[in-house]
Design a protein around this nucleic acid. Structure first.
Lengths: 108, 108
DNA sequence: GTATCGTGCAACCATCGGGTTGCCTTACCA
DNA sequence: TGGTAAGGCAACCCGATGGTTGCACGATAC
C-alpha cells in the first residue's frame, strides 16, 4: 500500500492526465493518437502522460496489431480514496473527541 | 467546482505535504517550525508546503501572537474523493452495460 | 515489394517546483 | 529597553517535468 497512492496523486495532479482518465473512463478504450486528436498537444506528449498513468496503475496498455490500446483501471482510485478517507476520518474523530471533552468540562 | 480538485491533487502529489497533512490531522494543530522539526528540511521549505496546502484549502493558517498556527480542513478531500468516485463509477457502469449486452447476445 | 500508418525512442528546450541562505520585521520576556 | 524567538520575503540553485522535433521500426494495405 506504500507509494502506489503517491503515484496516483502525482498522476492526477496534471489537468491533461485528468482529462485522459475521464475520457478513457467514458469511452472505455483509446489509442494515444486518438487522444492526441482531442488535446492541444503532440501524440508523444500524450504517450508520456499515458506512461505516467500506467505507472500509477490507472491505465493498462495492450498492443493490438500495429496500435496500442489503453484501457482504464479504477482500482488505484479506490486506494487513494481510502487514504483520503483515513486522514479525513482521523481529523473528524479528533474533533468529536474534543467536543466530548468540552461537554464533560461544561457538565461538571 | 472546477479547479479546486486539481489543487488538491497537486497538493497531495508531494510526499512531504502528505506527511504534513497526516501529521496535522493527527495532532490537530502545529506551526511551521514544529513541523520542520519532524522533517529533513528547513522551516521555509515547510512554510512553502503549507502555503500550497492552504491554497488547496486543506489547511488554514491563523496568526496567534508571534506564531502562526495551521489547522487541517478535510472538506476539499471529500471533493477530490467525489471526483474519483464519479470517474470510477462511470467506468464501472460502462462495464456493467457491456456485461448486459454480452448476456443479451448470448441469450438469444 | 513498396508505400504508409501507428508507435517507440532519444535528444533537446523551457519552465516549474522543491529547497536553501540571508535579512528584516514583529511579538514576547526579563 | 534591550535581547531573543518566530515568521515573512526575496533571491538564488538545480533537478524534475511537460512539451517539442526527428528518426527508426514493425504491421498493414496495395
Amino acid at each position: 500500500m506504500g507509494d502506489r497512492v503517491g503515484a496516483v496523486f502525482v498522476a492526477l495532479a496534471d489537468p491533461s492526465r485528468r482529462f485522459v482518465v475521464e475520457r478513457l473512463a467514458h469511452v472505455g478504450r483509446a489509442t494515444s493518437t486518438e487522444l492526441a486528436g482531442e488535446l492541444p498537444m503532440t501524440r508523444q506528449a500524450v504517450a508520456k502522460h499515458l506512461a505516467t498513468l500506467e505507472q500509477a496503475g490507472l491505465v493498462h496498455a495492450r498492443r493490438e496489431g500495429r496500435e496500442t490500446v489503453y484501457r482504464p483501471d479504477p482500482a488505484p482510485l479506490r486506494d487513494a480514496a481510502a487514504w483520503m478517507d483515513r486522514v479525513g476520518t482521523e481529523w473528524d474523530e479528533r474533533l468529536a473527541a474534543l467536543a466530548r471533552h468540552v461537554d464533560a468540562r461544561r457538565g461538571r
